[in-house]
């Protein structure tokens, strides 16, 4: 249903109907913005990069042949734009992935509601995810924050499902090492 709806909108856009573009933007803007935000951890960058993705869609819609679904294509464009941005940023700033986040010993497992409201925990989770290498961070974000399947992620990133799983495993190991204060003891 969603796919058919998107196909109709894409076809209308290909015929030059600007309103179809507006509908596609309104339909996907939140998902694309939050994806860009999850990857960049910066609202200004997320706004800029997500809009850049939509502009690219508008300008190259004639090249979309429908071999994948529209949202897979849109996600791929967004992820590529964000990855390029992250790579440029990583060149400017070296991050230590081995750094361990020190935390107060609190049993979050017995009170998840408290965990959701705890600012320190939320900041530490953000910092830990943000410290992952771009590829692992992207795979982790698409899987755990966007809820995409391994197959969809592989299609978006143009890699194998095995590579997606390997990246997820490595990301989880790195997060565990950084968040040892929470998961050990």
């Amino acid at each position: 249903m969603v796919k058919n709806e998107d196909t109709l909108l894409v076809n209308r856009l290909k015929k030059g109907e600007r309103k179809a573009f507006d509908e596609l933007v309104n339909k996907y803007k939140k998902r694309i913005y939050y994806l860009a935000y999850s990857l960049t951890n910066n609202h200004a960058d997320a706004l800029d990069l997500s809009q850049e993705a939509f502009i690219k869609v508008y300008k190259s819609i004639h090249r979309f042949r429908g071999r994948s679904s529209f949202y897979t294509w849109l996600y791929r464009i967004t992820v590529n734009i964000c990855l390029n941005h992250l790579k440029k940023k990583a060149k400017r700033k070296e991050i230590s992935f081995d750094e361990r986040i020190e935390v107060a010993q609190v049993d979050w497992w017995s009170n998840p509601k408290k965990a959701l409201e705890n600012k320190e925990l939320q900041e530490n989770l953000t910092r830990a995810i943000d410290s992952l290498p771009p590829q692992q961070k992207t795979v982790f974000t698409l899987r755990h924050l966007e809820g995409l399947s391994h197959k969809e992620i592989a299609s978006i990133l143009g890699c194998s499902i095995g590579s997606v799983k390997a990246n997820l495993f490595q990301a989880l190991q790195k997060l565990r090492n950084r968040l040892k204060g929470y998961v050990e003891g």
Binding site: Y34, W109, L116, Q122, L125, T126, H144, L145, Q173, L175
Partner: peptide, 13 residues
């Protein structure tokens, strides 16, 4: 790793 996965699911957007 199970604990880590549970923990990151506590992340609020």
């Amino acid at each position: 790793l199970v604990k880590t996965q549970k923990l990151v699911r506590l992340k609020v957007r």
